[in-house]
Amino acid sequence: MTAAVPGGRIAERGAPQPAGGRRLSIGRLSIDWRAQSVYVAFVALVAFDLLVTPGFRNPTVIRSLLFEAAPLILIALGQSLAIGTRGIDLSVGSVMALSSAMIGLTVDAGQGLAIGAGIAVGLACGVLNGLLVALLRIAPLISSLALLVAARGLAQALLGGARVDLPFGGPIPALGQMAPLGIPVVAIVSLLLAAAFAFVVRRTLPGRYALFVGASRTAATLAGHPVRLTLAFVYGLSGLLAGLAGVFATARLGAADANYIGVQFELDAIAAAVIGGTPLSGGRISTLGTVFGVLLLVVLDASFIMNNVNANYAQILKAAFIVGALYLRRGAA
Protein backbone atom coordinates (compact mmCIF):
# COMPACT_ATOMS: atom_id res chain seq x y z
CA MET A 1 0.00 0.00 0.00
CA THR A 2 2.58 2.46 1.12
CA ALA A 3 4.73 1.89 -1.88
CA ALA A 4 1.81 2.22 -4.25
CA VAL A 5 0.92 5.76 -3.29
CA PRO A 6 3.90 7.75 -4.59
CA GLY A 7 4.46 5.30 -7.43
CA GLY A 8 0.88 5.63 -8.58
CA ARG A 9 0.96 9.39 -8.67
CA ILE A 10 4.12 9.43 -10.70
CA ALA A 11 2.58 7.05 -13.21
CA GLU A 12 -0.52 9.20 -13.56
CA ARG A 13 1.35 12.36 -14.29
CA GLY A 14 3.97 10.70 -16.42
CA ALA A 15 1.45 9.01 -18.68
CA PRO A 16 0.00 11.78 -20.87
CA GLN A 17 3.09 12.43 -22.95
CA PRO A 18 2.82 12.82 -26.70
CA ALA A 19 4.35 9.70 -28.19
CA GLY A 20 7.45 10.17 -30.31
CA GLY A 21 8.23 13.61 -28.94
CA ARG A 22 10.46 12.43 -26.14
CA ARG A 23 13.74 13.52 -27.60
CA LEU A 24 12.61 16.98 -28.61
CA SER A 25 11.78 19.89 -26.41
CA ILE A 26 8.85 18.12 -24.82
CA GLY A 27 11.11 15.20 -24.06
CA ARG A 28 13.56 17.52 -22.38
CA LEU A 29 10.77 18.83 -20.22
CA SER A 30 9.81 15.32 -19.25
CA ILE A 31 13.40 14.47 -18.32
CA ASP A 32 13.57 17.60 -16.23
CA TRP A 33 10.41 16.50 -14.52
CA ARG A 34 11.76 13.03 -13.99
CA ALA A 35 14.80 14.46 -12.29
CA GLN A 36 12.45 15.84 -9.64
CA SER A 37 10.66 12.56 -9.02
CA VAL A 38 12.63 11.70 -5.89
CA TYR A 39 11.45 14.90 -4.17
CA VAL A 40 7.85 14.30 -5.22
CA ALA A 41 8.01 10.73 -3.95
CA PHE A 42 9.59 11.86 -0.68
CA VAL A 43 6.98 14.55 -0.05
CA ALA A 44 4.16 12.15 -0.96
CA LEU A 45 5.52 9.46 1.36
CA VAL A 46 5.99 11.86 4.27
CA ALA A 47 2.49 13.29 3.72
CA PHE A 48 1.10 9.78 3.70
CA ASP A 49 2.92 8.93 6.91
CA LEU A 50 1.79 12.13 8.64
CA LEU A 51 -1.83 11.36 7.77
CA VAL A 52 -1.94 7.61 8.22
CA THR A 53 1.01 6.15 10.10
CA PRO A 54 0.38 6.08 13.85
CA GLY A 55 3.05 7.86 15.89
CA PHE A 56 4.98 9.23 12.91
CA ARG A 57 4.49 12.80 14.12
CA ASN A 58 6.42 12.11 17.29
CA PRO A 59 9.70 14.12 17.16
CA THR A 60 11.69 11.14 18.48
CA VAL A 61 10.80 9.31 15.26
CA ILE A 62 12.42 12.01 13.15
CA ARG A 63 15.40 11.93 15.48
CA SER A 64 15.93 8.20 15.09
CA LEU A 65 15.34 8.40 11.33
CA LEU A 66 18.10 10.98 11.07
CA PHE A 67 20.41 8.75 13.12
CA GLU A 68 19.71 5.98 10.62
CA ALA A 69 20.20 8.26 7.65
CA ALA A 70 23.50 9.89 8.68
CA PRO A 71 25.93 7.07 7.76
CA LEU A 72 23.89 6.14 4.69
CA ILE A 73 24.09 9.71 3.40
CA LEU A 74 27.88 9.62 3.66
CA ILE A 75 28.33 6.39 1.73
CA ALA A 76 25.64 7.34 -0.80
CA LEU A 77 27.57 10.56 -1.56
CA GLY A 78 30.77 8.63 -2.24
CA GLN A 79 28.76 6.12 -4.22
CA SER A 80 27.11 8.78 -6.37
CA LEU A 81 30.49 10.24 -7.34
CA ALA A 82 31.82 6.76 -8.18
CA ILE A 83 28.71 6.15 -10.30
CA GLY A 84 29.23 9.60 -11.84
CA THR A 85 32.59 8.38 -13.17
CA ARG A 86 30.69 5.42 -14.63
CA GLY A 87 32.07 3.18 -11.89
CA ILE A 88 30.65 1.72 -8.71
CA ASP A 89 31.88 1.11 -5.18
CA LEU A 90 30.54 -2.13 -3.71
CA SER A 91 32.98 -2.05 -0.81
CA VAL A 92 31.39 0.73 1.28
CA GLY A 93 29.44 -1.53 3.65
CA SER A 94 32.43 -3.74 4.39
CA VAL A 95 34.69 -0.73 4.80
CA MET A 96 32.24 0.52 7.43
CA ALA A 97 32.67 -2.82 9.22
CA LEU A 98 36.46 -2.55 8.99
CA SER A 99 36.30 0.97 10.38
CA SER A 100 34.16 -0.37 13.23
CA ALA A 101 36.68 -3.14 13.89
CA MET A 102 39.54 -0.60 14.05
CA ILE A 103 37.55 1.39 16.60
CA GLY A 104 37.03 -1.77 18.64
CA LEU A 105 40.76 -2.48 18.57
CA THR A 106 42.00 0.99 19.42
CA VAL A 107 39.28 2.34 21.70
CA ASP A 108 41.27 1.53 24.84
CA ALA A 109 44.08 3.79 23.65
CA GLY A 110 41.74 6.79 23.45
CA GLN A 111 38.52 7.52 21.62
CA GLY A 112 39.89 10.35 19.50
CA LEU A 113 42.58 8.00 18.25
CA ALA A 114 39.93 5.32 17.59
CA ILE A 115 37.86 7.72 15.47
CA GLY A 116 41.01 8.67 13.57
CA ALA A 117 41.88 5.01 13.05
CA GLY A 118 38.41 4.23 11.72
CA ILE A 119 38.51 7.08 9.22
CA ALA A 120 42.11 6.31 8.25
CA VAL A 121 41.43 2.67 7.48
CA GLY A 122 38.49 3.74 5.33
CA LEU A 123 40.72 6.14 3.41
CA ALA A 124 43.35 3.42 2.99
CA CYS A 125 40.76 1.02 1.54
CA GLY A 126 39.46 3.71 -0.78
CA VAL A 127 42.93 4.62 -2.02
CA LEU A 128 43.75 0.95 -2.62
CA ASN A 129 40.51 0.58 -4.56
CA GLY A 130 41.28 3.76 -6.50
CA LEU A 131 44.76 2.56 -7.41
CA LEU A 132 43.38 -0.74 -8.65
CA VAL A 133 40.83 1.06 -10.80
CA ALA A 134 43.07 3.87 -11.98
CA LEU A 135 46.49 2.29 -12.43
CA LEU A 136 45.70 -1.36 -13.11
CA ARG A 137 42.51 -0.52 -15.00
CA ILE A 138 40.49 -3.15 -13.16
CA ALA A 139 36.72 -2.86 -13.50
CA PRO A 140 35.46 -0.97 -10.40
CA LEU A 141 32.77 -3.60 -9.90
CA ILE A 142 35.42 -6.30 -9.48
CA SER A 143 38.00 -4.38 -7.48
CA SER A 144 35.37 -3.16 -5.04
CA LEU A 145 33.82 -6.64 -4.96
CA ALA A 146 37.16 -8.12 -3.93
CA LEU A 147 37.43 -5.39 -1.31
CA LEU A 148 33.89 -6.13 -0.13
CA VAL A 149 34.81 -9.75 0.53
CA ALA A 150 38.29 -9.05 1.90
CA ALA A 151 37.48 -6.05 4.12
CA ARG A 152 34.67 -7.82 5.94
CA GLY A 153 36.83 -10.91 6.34
CA LEU A 154 39.62 -8.78 7.76
CA ALA A 155 37.22 -6.94 10.08
CA GLN A 156 35.84 -10.23 11.41
CA ALA A 157 39.32 -11.66 11.82
CA LEU A 158 40.50 -8.55 13.69
CA LEU A 159 37.67 -8.78 16.24
CA GLY A 160 37.62 -12.58 16.27
CA GLY A 161 33.91 -12.52 15.45
CA ALA A 162 33.05 -10.92 18.79
CA ARG A 163 31.21 -7.71 19.53
CA VAL A 164 33.29 -5.16 21.45
CA ASP A 165 31.19 -2.90 23.66
CA LEU A 166 32.30 0.71 23.85
CA PRO A 167 32.57 2.65 27.13
CA PHE A 168 29.56 4.74 28.13
CA GLY A 169 31.30 8.10 28.29
CA GLY A 170 33.40 10.04 25.81
CA PRO A 171 33.14 11.44 22.30
CA ILE A 172 32.07 8.25 20.48
CA PRO A 173 28.97 7.53 22.60
CA ALA A 174 28.21 11.25 22.42
CA LEU A 175 28.14 10.98 18.62
CA GLY A 176 25.65 8.16 18.95
CA GLN A 177 23.30 10.05 21.24
CA MET A 178 23.75 13.81 21.10
CA ALA A 179 20.87 15.56 19.36
CA PRO A 180 20.53 19.26 20.18
CA LEU A 181 16.99 20.47 19.32
CA GLY A 182 16.14 16.91 18.31
CA ILE A 183 18.58 16.89 15.41
CA PRO A 184 21.45 14.41 15.80
CA VAL A 185 24.97 15.82 15.55
CA VAL A 186 25.87 13.06 13.10
CA ALA A 187 23.04 14.14 10.79
CA ILE A 188 24.24 17.75 10.92
CA VAL A 189 27.78 16.63 10.10
CA SER A 190 26.51 14.47 7.23
CA LEU A 191 24.42 17.29 5.76
CA LEU A 192 27.29 19.77 6.06
CA LEU A 193 29.55 17.27 4.33
CA ALA A 194 26.89 16.84 1.64
CA ALA A 195 26.94 20.61 1.08
CA ALA A 196 30.74 20.58 0.87
CA PHE A 197 30.50 17.60 -1.46
CA ALA A 198 28.10 19.47 -3.75
CA PHE A 199 30.56 22.38 -3.85
CA VAL A 200 33.45 20.06 -4.72
CA VAL A 201 31.45 18.42 -7.50
CA ARG A 202 30.14 21.64 -9.01
CA ARG A 203 32.86 24.16 -8.49
CA THR A 204 36.21 22.43 -8.22
CA LEU A 205 38.42 20.72 -10.76
CA PRO A 206 38.41 17.21 -9.22
CA GLY A 207 34.61 17.20 -9.26
CA ARG A 208 34.35 18.44 -12.84
CA TYR A 209 37.05 16.00 -13.97
CA ALA A 210 35.20 13.12 -12.28
CA LEU A 211 32.02 13.77 -14.25
CA PHE A 212 34.01 14.31 -17.43
CA VAL A 213 35.69 10.92 -16.94
CA GLY A 214 32.23 9.43 -16.45
CA ALA A 215 30.88 11.02 -19.61
CA SER A 216 33.78 9.71 -21.67
CA ARG A 217 37.01 8.37 -20.29
CA THR A 218 38.57 8.42 -23.74
CA ALA A 219 37.67 12.06 -24.30
CA ALA A 220 38.98 13.00 -20.86
CA THR A 221 42.26 11.20 -21.59
CA LEU A 222 42.60 12.84 -24.99
CA ALA A 223 41.88 16.24 -23.49
CA GLY A 224 44.85 15.70 -21.19
CA HIS A 225 42.90 15.57 -17.96
CA PRO A 226 44.47 13.65 -15.07
CA VAL A 227 42.13 10.67 -15.40
CA ARG A 228 44.03 8.34 -13.09
CA LEU A 229 44.47 10.90 -10.35
CA THR A 230 40.79 11.74 -10.60
CA LEU A 231 39.73 8.11 -10.23
CA ALA A 232 42.08 7.62 -7.28
CA PHE A 233 40.57 10.75 -5.71
CA VAL A 234 36.99 9.57 -6.27
CA TYR A 235 37.46 6.11 -4.74
CA GLY A 236 39.67 7.50 -1.97
CA LEU A 237 36.90 9.96 -1.08
CA SER A 238 34.32 7.16 -1.13
CA GLY A 239 36.49 5.11 1.24
CA LEU A 240 37.06 8.10 3.51
CA LEU A 241 33.33 8.74 3.75
CA ALA A 242 32.69 5.04 4.38
CA GLY A 243 35.25 5.13 7.20
CA LEU A 244 33.43 8.06 8.80
CA ALA A 245 30.09 6.29 8.23
CA GLY A 246 31.55 3.32 10.10
CA VAL A 247 32.38 5.63 13.02
CA PHE A 248 28.80 6.97 13.04
CA ALA A 249 27.21 3.52 12.83
CA THR A 250 29.49 2.17 15.57
CA ALA A 251 28.68 5.15 17.80
CA ARG A 252 24.96 4.61 17.28
CA LEU A 253 25.22 0.89 18.05
CA GLY A 254 27.43 1.54 21.09
CA ALA A 255 29.64 -1.35 20.04
CA ALA A 256 32.10 -2.44 17.38
CA ASP A 257 30.63 -5.36 15.45
CA ALA A 258 32.12 -6.65 12.21
CA ASN A 259 29.21 -8.99 11.53
CA TYR A 260 26.46 -6.41 11.83
CA ILE A 261 27.74 -2.98 10.77
CA GLY A 262 27.17 -2.03 7.15
CA VAL A 263 25.78 -5.35 5.90
CA GLN A 264 24.19 -4.73 2.47
CA PHE A 265 24.54 -0.98 2.93
CA GLU A 266 26.19 -0.82 -0.49
CA LEU A 267 22.84 -1.83 -2.01
CA ASP A 268 20.94 0.95 -0.24
CA ALA A 269 23.65 3.44 -1.20
CA ILE A 270 23.47 2.48 -4.87
CA ALA A 271 19.67 2.53 -4.85
CA ALA A 272 19.61 5.95 -3.15
CA ALA A 273 22.08 7.45 -5.61
CA VAL A 274 20.29 6.09 -8.68
CA ILE A 275 16.80 6.97 -7.44
CA GLY A 276 18.13 10.43 -6.62
CA GLY A 277 19.04 11.10 -10.22
CA THR A 278 22.59 9.83 -10.74
CA PRO A 279 22.34 7.53 -13.77
CA LEU A 280 24.46 4.36 -13.83
CA SER A 281 25.69 5.44 -17.26
CA GLY A 282 27.86 8.11 -15.64
CA GLY A 283 28.63 11.73 -16.40
CA ARG A 284 25.91 13.19 -14.22
CA ILE A 285 25.35 13.48 -10.51
CA SER A 286 22.77 14.93 -8.17
CA THR A 287 23.93 15.57 -4.61
CA LEU A 288 20.60 16.83 -3.30
CA GLY A 289 18.84 13.97 -5.07
CA THR A 290 21.17 11.47 -3.41
CA VAL A 291 20.46 12.92 0.05
CA PHE A 292 16.73 12.73 -0.61
CA GLY A 293 17.13 9.24 -2.06
CA VAL A 294 18.60 8.16 1.29
CA LEU A 295 15.85 9.94 3.24
CA LEU A 296 13.24 8.31 1.01
CA LEU A 297 14.59 4.81 1.66
CA VAL A 298 14.93 5.44 5.40
CA VAL A 299 11.38 6.81 5.67
CA LEU A 300 10.14 3.91 3.54
CA ASP A 301 11.71 1.40 5.95
CA ALA A 302 10.18 3.25 8.89
CA SER A 303 6.77 3.36 7.21
CA PHE A 304 6.77 -0.40 6.86
CA ILE A 305 7.88 -0.98 10.44
CA MET A 306 5.48 1.55 11.98
CA ASN A 307 2.53 0.15 10.02
CA ASN A 308 3.42 -3.32 11.29
CA VAL A 309 4.13 -4.63 7.82
CA ASN A 310 5.84 -8.01 8.12
CA ALA A 311 9.58 -7.37 7.65
CA ASN A 312 9.75 -9.84 4.77
CA TYR A 313 6.80 -8.35 2.93
CA ALA A 314 8.49 -5.03 3.57
CA GLN A 315 11.62 -6.23 1.81
CA ILE A 316 9.62 -7.39 -1.20
CA LEU A 317 7.67 -4.11 -1.31
CA LYS A 318 10.89 -2.11 -1.01
CA ALA A 319 12.41 -3.99 -3.93
CA ALA A 320 9.27 -3.38 -5.98
CA PHE A 321 9.38 0.28 -4.99
CA ILE A 322 13.01 0.66 -6.11
CA VAL A 323 12.30 -1.04 -9.44
CA GLY A 324 9.18 1.07 -9.90
CA ALA A 325 11.03 4.29 -9.14
CA LEU A 326 13.81 3.43 -11.57
CA TYR A 327 11.37 2.25 -14.22
CA LEU A 328 9.70 5.64 -14.13
CA ARG A 329 12.96 7.48 -14.59
CA ARG A 330 14.49 5.05 -17.07
CA GLY A 331 14.39 7.73 -19.75
CA ALA A 332 16.89 9.70 -17.75
CA ALA A 333 18.87 6.78 -16.37
Partner: peptide, 17 residues
Protein backbone atom coordinates in the same frame (compact mmCIF):
# COMPACT_ATOMS: atom_id res chain seq x y z
CA UNK B 1 38.52 -18.82 11.67
CA UNK B 2 36.10 -18.70 8.77
CA UNK B 3 36.72 -14.95 8.66
CA UNK B 4 40.06 -15.55 6.97
CA UNK B 5 38.24 -17.28 4.16
CA UNK B 6 36.79 -13.95 3.08
CA UNK B 7 40.20 -12.33 3.32
CA UNK B 8 41.88 -15.07 1.28
CA UNK B 9 39.11 -15.25 -1.35
CA UNK B 10 39.12 -11.48 -1.75
CA UNK B 11 42.90 -11.32 -2.05
CA UNK B 12 42.86 -14.17 -4.53
CA UNK B 13 40.18 -12.56 -6.64
CA UNK B 14 42.22 -9.35 -6.74
CA UNK B 15 45.34 -11.21 -7.76
CA UNK B 16 43.47 -13.05 -10.50
CA UNK B 17 41.95 -9.85 -11.82
Amino acid sequence: SAAYQGLASGAFLLLAV
